[in-house]
Nucleic acid binder design. Structure first.
Length: 291
DNA sequence: AACCAGGTCTCGA
DNA sequence: TCGAGACCTGGT
């Protein structure tokens, strides 16, 4: 049983993580290279698999002072209403490499499709765990059979993922180091990667590198900002609006706003069948078609 | 059968 | 600096 406030459905089903699914009331995921099963009964979360408490605590950011954070973002009336409606929603601290790789695949794809792409990579390149699931593959594991990545249905994101994996493997990019510096430096560094723009950089910063002020603006968030606050324009404008409005924990506010605009996804990821696809995409980045 | 998806890229004003 | 358009592909 956990000794901190946590609502599993809200936290695991709100689109910040892609490998969790709920089956017969039990959430199943992979954390720290182990399959983990969790169940919530009468508000209490039970850990059904053997896993170090410290691992769970770190993953669910047990060290976050939820009362303080909720109080601070509740300075905004609308967010305050969401905080009382979605009590127990937490940000998750993901592994930086897994987070970066997952979100580089997330551009212009639905949550279900992202789940499929990620699960596809895991079953092909990830170490098989006891229990049947697979670990998220290391950069080395992916690059070892780099050509096979092209048949994972990633489309034009394929080349982006391989470039990221190469830089991480070669030590050219040290993701964990970006925890130490400030938010602007972190985002600036991430955006040098192909396939990582404003939004994906903010996701990586928020979901894996402890920059709680990061405020990813996707289409859903863009909708709320416009309809509720009349904020619109460029990405920078909306991000600055959020920073001023929601403060240093803007990232938490973002998660509540995201939830308010859509439903949770709890279904099991469906791995696309292994048809070979993605032929020229790896070498042809998106852009205007030259005829 | 279209249409859209937790965006990014490149180009032109 | 900003707005357009194009874009792999699988869900719905």
């Amino acid at each position: 049983m956990l000794n901190f406030t946590l609502d599993l459905d809200l936290t695991l089903g709100c689109g910040q993580v892609f490998r969790w699914y709920k089956e017969e009331g039990v959430w199943n995921g992979v954390v720290g290279g182990r399959e983990v099963r969790l169940r919530q009964v009468d508000g209490e979360v039970e850990v059904l698999t053997a896993v170090a408490g410290a691992t769970i605590d770190s993953y669910f950011r047990a060290d976050d002072d939820l009362d303080e954070i909720y109080a601070e973002i509740s300075a905004d009336p609308f967010v305050a209403s969401l905080v009382s409606k979605y009590h127990g929603l937490r940000l998750i601290r993901q592994d930086p490499w897994e987070c970066a790789a997952s979100y580089i695949l997330a551009s212009y794809a639905s949550v279900r499709r992202i789940q499929g792409m990620v699960e596809s990579l895991c079953t092909r390149f990830g170490r098989r765990l006891e229990g049947g699931r697979h670990a998220f593959p290391s950069p080395e594991a992916i690059l070892r059979k780099g050509e096979e990545v092209e048949s994972c249905g990633l489309g034009y994101r394929c080349g982006w993922l391989l470039e990221l994996a190469t830089k991480v493997r070669d030590g050219e990019l040290d993701l964990a180091r970006l925890r130490e510096g400030d938010y602007d430096e972190c985002v600036g560094e991430l955006k040098r990667l192909r396939g990582v723009g404003d939004k994906v950089a903010d996701c990586i910063a928020l979901f894996s590198l402890d920059h709680l002020q990061a405020f990813p603006v996707d289409v859903r968030i863009g909708r709320v900002l416009r309809s509720r606050y009349g904020a619109m324009g460029t990405y920078a404008k909306m991000r600055n609006f959020a920073a001023q409005r929601f403060g240093r924990y803007a990232g938490y506010a973002q998660q509540f706003l995201y939830l308010s605009e859509g439903e949770c996804v709890t279904g099991r990821p469906r791995v696309p069948s292994t048809r070979g696809r993605c032929t020229r995409a790896a070498s042809t980045p998106p852009g205007p078609r030259r005829s």
